[in-house]
Amino acid sequence: MSDNAKLMPGEERQPTLSQRSPERTTMWVFHGNHARYASGLFETLDAGLTWAAEHKLTGTMTEYRVGGTYDVAVEEGRFRPSRAHHGSPDHVAGFSPGLRHIHLADGHPDD
């Protein structure tokens, strides 16, 4: 899929090989299903999954590149502003497309 292709509902753009480069700094963030704020930040997916399993958590573990998610997504071509409100303070503050993500139920990946 080219960077300019539109995604269908439910589809997500996967990171390119350069976006998965070891030089690219990413972190894993855990956000509980009913939580207002994220409750965990991890350098590796394994560390995050271990922590979530210990606490039997339900939510989402999402990989983010370090930086503002809106700016990073625009820079990498994963999002193209196309509406008047794109880039507004409210839009940027609520923008959250991470990279890979895993849904967890009671601390285990929810397949």
Rank of each mutant, 00 (worst) to 15 (best):
G59M: 03
D71N: 11
E23T: 05
L7C: 06
R100C: 11
A38T: 06
H34M: 15
W28L: 03
H55T: 10
V92K: 15
G107D: 05
K6P: 03
S82K: 06
F79P: 03
V92L: 11
T26L: 04
V66S: 15
Y70E: 04
F79V: 10
E63P: 00
G107M: 04
D110I: 02
V66P: 04
Y70R: 07
P9N: 02
S21M: 07
S21P: 00
G48N: 03
G68I: 01
S96Q: 09
S39P: 00
A5K: 04
R100Q: 10
T69E: 15
A52M: 12
H91T: 06
N4P: 00
L41S: 13
H55A: 09
P22S: 15
R100S: 09
H108G: 02
A52N: 01
E43G: 12
L41E: 12
G48P: 02
H101S: 13
W51G: 02
F95S: 07
D111Q: 09
T50D: 10
A35S: 13
L41Q: 14
Y70C: 06
G48Y: 03
S82E: 14
T26E: 11
G67P: 05
H86I: 03
A84P: 07
T69L: 05
T60L: 05
V66T: 12
G68Y: 08
H31M: 11
E11S: 12
G48K: 01
P89Q: 10
H101M: 14
I102Y: 15
L99H: 05
D46I: 00
R83S: 08
G10E: 02
L57S: 01
A5S: 09
P81R: 11
K6Q: 12
S39A: 14
D46T: 07
Y37D: 13
A73V: 03
R20G: 01
A47W: 01
L104K: 00
R80T: 14
G10Q: 05
G94M: 13
L104V: 07
N4E: 11
G68N: 13
